[in-house]
Design a protein around this nucleic acid. Structure first.
Length: 456
RNA sequence: GGGGGCGUGGUGUAGUUGGAUAACAUAUCGGCCUGUCAAGCCGAAGACCGCGGGUUCGAGUCCCGUCGCUCCCGCCA
């Protein structure tokens, strides 16, 4: 891009935020309307500038939102000359009520101060209603693109999902933990792990807090964790990345996996209610329809689900150990039409397909007390009851070809007594992706790590 | 690891069975405008059509290779 050289704008002598007359407290854009008739100071990014000739409208954006200032002084307007959008400005002005302004008020008689000028044109527009660039271009410019109001709304939702998760579980007597992300052995066989050099010894990035949260059930009974997990799978799909945030939980003294499913149902209901209360504007902006959860989420056994697919779609996947993405989509269609639910539990996956610590079903030990939760056609949670007796767990480990030595620390918890327990892991980005009906998991990830994306 | 699709100004797209100065929107730059809010109007600049080779009188368009992106499958959250 060729840019004509311009004259650099005149900056304040300190170039910073504090200056003479800077004794006035800066307020945020969402506080302005409670200062009608007063002079206030705002600071933020030049979101838009509509030059009408003798005057113009400057839309300033800060962490809270946007606010309009009217500039009609040639000297103040001249300070914007040569500045691109996203320049950081400070504006002092009189809060004046005006029905013509979207907020019902605006700043008049403004004085502008340039804090950080932006001189190079932006690679794409971020002050329009919709963000135009394709995924790749967007992600390469994430530091800029994430400033778009829709992206901000999305990641506020993401933050509130985490906050709601923490809030509800804390109320229910759960203790938040942080398990190590550098581990000495792979948690679950099969899944690929990232190997790192740990002072000359091989170590791995944790692919799940599974062992640690189970161990901590032995301490607190009820624990949860919000943290990153790492998967070295070389997959390239719209619903996988190599690092994501896992909302984990593990709880003791359960009757069976249905207690865990009930807790999951309750926490999701709480999160969804909370979103509607605290982020109504963001939900509206993104046209998000939050699903309603009744007394319970409908549930199907895997074998029944497969039977249903055979009957309704003619595809025979009966006997398969797992569902294909197409099957999940079909089942969710069915759940929405017949059961009036956008969420659907699938239970009783075969033992052979689940990890060694999964509790087998009492009636049929070839099946497990494990479940998945599907949401609008995509798997967002996996969970189940775990084996709590030492001998049974040890035998299973051996049967699965796992060296007990390698998971010695984990087994220790069981040797010294563990209650019946179970838990689950929600994929945060998956949940948000499905909630906002996005086409790609990366859109729900701030800085996605995938097969060939390591920055920004 | 396997399969499909797409690469055209900064960005997003159009470009017909191969045909002459590659179009549109927006951004950028200049000008006009006292109520914009995806501002509007006038003007300018900006792309050798990802790269390499081939077919042809002629390639953005067809073929081969290559690189990049994207989607699907396997695996999973």
């Amino acid at each position: 891009m060729k840019v004509a050289p311009r004259e650099a704008p005149v900056l304040s002598s300190d170039g910073g935020f504090n200056y003479e007359g800077g004794s006035m407290q800066r307020i945020r854009t969402d506080e302005v309307t409670s200062h009608v008739g007063e002079r206030v100071k705002l600071a933020g990014w030049m979101h838009n500038w509509r030059d009408m000739g003798k005057f113009g409208f400057l839309v300033l954006r800060d962490g809270a939102g946007t606010f309009q200032a009217v500039l009609d002084n040639p000297e103040e307007m001249g300070k914007l000359k040569g500045l691109q959008y996203e320049s950081v400005l400070e504006i002092q002005g009189l809060v004046t009520p005006d029905p013509r302004a979207a907020a019902g008020a605006e700043l008049h008689d403004c004085r502008v101060r340039v804090i950080s000028p932006v001189l190079e044109p932006l690679p794409f527009e971020i002050n329009k209603k919709e963000l135009k660039p394709g995924l790749d271009v967007f992600l390469n410019h994430a530091p800029l693109g994430l400033r778009h109001l829709e992206k901000r709304a999305l990641f506020r939702i993401s933050a509130q999902v985490m906050a709601g998760y923490r809030e509800y579980l804390t109320q229910q007597g759960f203790v938040e933990i942080q398990s190590p992300k550098i581990v000495g052995s792979a948690t679950e066989s099969g899944a690929n792990v990232f190997c790192i050099d740990y002072f000359g010894r091989p170590a791995y990035l944790a692919q799940s807090p599974q062992f640690y949260k189970q161990i901590m059930v032995g301490v607190f009974e009820r624990v949860f964790e919000v943290g990153p997990v790492f998967r070295a799978e070389k997959h390239s799909t719209s619903r996988h990345t190599n690092e994501y945030v896992s909302l984990d939980l593990e709880m003791g003294f359960i009757r069976d996996h249905t207690d865990v499913m009930a807790m999951l149902t309750a926490v999701l209901r709480y999160i969804f209610d909370r979103l509607q209360q605290s982020l109504a504007r963001e939900l509206e902006l993104l046209k998000i329809k939050v699903p309603s959860i009744g007394d319970s989420i409908p549930s199907l056994r895997l074998s029944d689900a497969q039977e249903l697919i055979f009957e309704r779609h003619g595809e025979d996947c009966r006997g398969e150990p797992d569902l294909a993405p197409q099957h999940e989509a079909w089942l969710c269609e069915h759940a929405e039409q017949e059961l009036h639910s956008e969420l659907l539990f699938i239970t009783h996956y075969p033992t052979a397909k689940r990890p060694f610590y999964t509790m087998p079903d009492d009636q049929d030990p070839s099946l497990t007390k494990g479940f998945d939760l599907l949401f609008r056609g995509c798997e967002i949670v996996t969970g189940g009851q775990r084996i709590h007796r030492y001998e049974q767990l040890l035998n299973n480990a051996l049967q699965w070809g796992i060296d007990p030595e390698a998971i010695d620390g984990y087994l220790q918890a069981f040797k010294y007594g563990m209650p019946p327990h179970g838990g689950f892991a929600i994929g945060l980005e998956r949940l948000v992706m499905q909630l906002a009906e996005l086409g790609n998991l990366r859109e729900a990830t701030l800085f996605p790590r995938d097969l060939d994306r390591l920055s920004p």
